[in-house]
């Protein structure tokens, strides 16, 4: 639903990680669920959507019940943070080496989405807030440069 547009990219990231890293998929959905409930849990279309998302989360949690990243919040936090920083560092290395391409733009953007997801564990650190801001800005900036044929600085 349009009211939940703010979490559509997090849900897409969840889908993309379904096989590759189900823990990432789970926490992206948990973030979307929590945020979605704050945005709109009253209108029928949003309620229907959120109930379906909750069903999915509960079944994922059952499937992943042996994974410490799901059963222990602190392990989950570390998993998502490490993954986000890995994405960030890959994109940052490409950027510093002057290699600008779609994949690195996506890595910057995914890192920023996963830093949003970290907020399910509590308030973000100042460092993570800065990384998120930088990653989001870099993704937009390089994307625009490539689109207009400019070389990013």
């Amino acid at each position: 639903p349009a009211q939940l547009k703010a979490v559509q990219h997090h849900l897409r990231t969840a889908q993309e990680h379904e096989k590759r890293d189900p823990v990432v998929a789970y926490y992206c959905r948990l973030y979307a669920m929590q945020t979605g409930m704050k945005l709109d849990s009253k209108t029928p279309e949003c309620r229907k959507f959120l109930v379906k998302l909750m069903d999915q989360l509960e079944s994922m949690k059952t499937e992943l019940s042996d994974d410490d990243s799901i059963t222990q919040e602190v392990v989950g936090n570390a998993h998502i943070e490490n993954y986000a920083l890995k994405m960030f560092l890959y994109a940052d290395n490409e950027d510093r080496a002057g290699r600008f391409h779609k994949n690195m733009i996506k890595s910057f953007y995914t890192a920023s989405l996963l830093l949003d997801v970290l907020s399910v564990f509590g308030e973000l650190s100042e460092e993570n807030i800065q990384h998120r801001k930088y990653a989001r800005w870099k993704a937009a900036y390089i994307h625009n440069c490539l689109k207009s044929g400019e070389t990013p600085e």
């Binding site: 409930m37 109930v51 909750m54 949690k61 059963t71 222990q72 919040e73």
Partner: peptide, 27 residues
Amino acid sequence: TGSVGASVASAEQDELSQRLARLRDQM
């Protein structure tokens, strides 16, 4: 009927909040 609709919506919302709390509880 408006108030019935509103209370159904509120009950469903509560159920969702409870399910979310249970999901987070076991973490």
